[in-house]
């Protein structure tokens, strides 16, 4: 019996799935590399887009916050407050929508070659991480401009980035798998992203919601169910040296929702992935 023995049976999950995932790690990198290479082909300003895009979003969000008189805590410049939130939000929204459509746009691969399907949505998220790093440098530059020095909390940032990644991966896997069968999700995804921007603390802060007199106390807990609340509050807390509040209970609730999404996403994806080639 060779160590490469494979048994194919109806319904049985692959016993060697995670080992296969490791074997195909090279493909993971190559798909991400392909997406990076192809990204700005045939655009006039090329790579400059990855700097311009976050700057435009940042400007719009800061303007909205100013317009709606969102409260700025202490000595934090509004632009920095918004930048600390735009950073994870942009990462999540692009990673989520790219991952959701990744299986459909790679359908030619799915019907012709075997590899653990998880690689496709996961590799698109890697590409978004590269954009994130570029945006992160922009935020650092912005901090320099405002002579704002972050404190040691900055070192915790990778943890919150991981949380953002978990949220994007979980929801992305779930929608990607559903999208294979029901193309309706292709139209739902932009809506989720659009609505998500309004219920997540990007232009405003979580303090605005928690201290609002107009929102009844009884429904405020709903706010924390948004997994992005934990991610964005965490980013602000790290980047702005604790000048914004990290509401413990709210953070735990939305982190739990993120983890739940990951578990549900992976399980649904794994259950349906063997049939992808038949229905795509």
């Amino acid at each position: 019996m060779s160590k490469h023995r494979i048994v194919l049976e109806p319904g049985s999950a692959d016993r060697h799935y995670w080992r296969d995932l490791w074997t195909y790690r090279g493909l993971f990198g190559f798909l991400a590399w392909r997406d990076v290479l192809v990204r700005y082909k045939q655009t006039a300003i090329g790579i400059a887009w990855s700097v311009l895009k976050p700057l435009l979003t940042l400007g719009t969000m800061a303007f909205l916050g100013w317009l709606f008189e969102s409260k700025v805590p202490g000595d934090v410049p509004r632009l920095l407050l918004v930048a600390a939130a735009t950073l994870p939000w942009t990462f999540f929204s692009t990673a989520f929508s790219e991952a959701s459509n990744s299986l459909i746009s790679n359908s030619n691969l799915l019907t012709k070659v075997y590899f653990p399907r998880l690689i496709v949505p996961a590799s698109t998220i890697i590409v978004c991480l590269i954009d994130f790093l570029i945006s992160f440098v922009i935020v650092l530059v912005l901090m320099g401009v405002y002579c704002f020095t972050p404190d040691a909390r900055l070192l915790l940032l990778p943890l919150f980035l991981l949380l953002a990644l978990v949220t994007a991966l979980g929801s992305g896997l779930l929608i990607a798998a559903l999208n294979v069968k029901y193309r309706d999700f292709r139209y739902i995804v932009p809506f989720i992203v659009q609505a998500g921007l309004y219920v997540s603390p990007v232009a405003f802060t979580s303090a605005d919601i928690r201290n609002s007199a107009r929102i009844p106390e009884a429904v405020k807990w709903l706010y924390d169910l948004n997994p992005l609340v934990g991610v964005i509050d965490g980013f602000r807390w790290c980047l702005l040296g604790g000048r914004t509040e990290l509401h413990t209970q709210g953070f735990l609730v939305s982190t739990a929702v993120s983890l739940l999404l990951l578990v549900v996403g992976i399980r649904y994806f794994r259950r349906t992935e063997r049939g992808f080639a038949d229905v795509i």
Partner: peptide
């Protein structure tokens, strides 16, 4: 497609002892 593991069988069983490229 079944031997290449692109699509699962509905019944029966396949045993392959080796690295497959398709």
């Amino acid at each position: 497609k079944i031997l290449s593991r692109i699509t699962p069988p509905s019944s029966g069983r396949v045993t392959i002892d080796g690295r497959v490229a398709s």
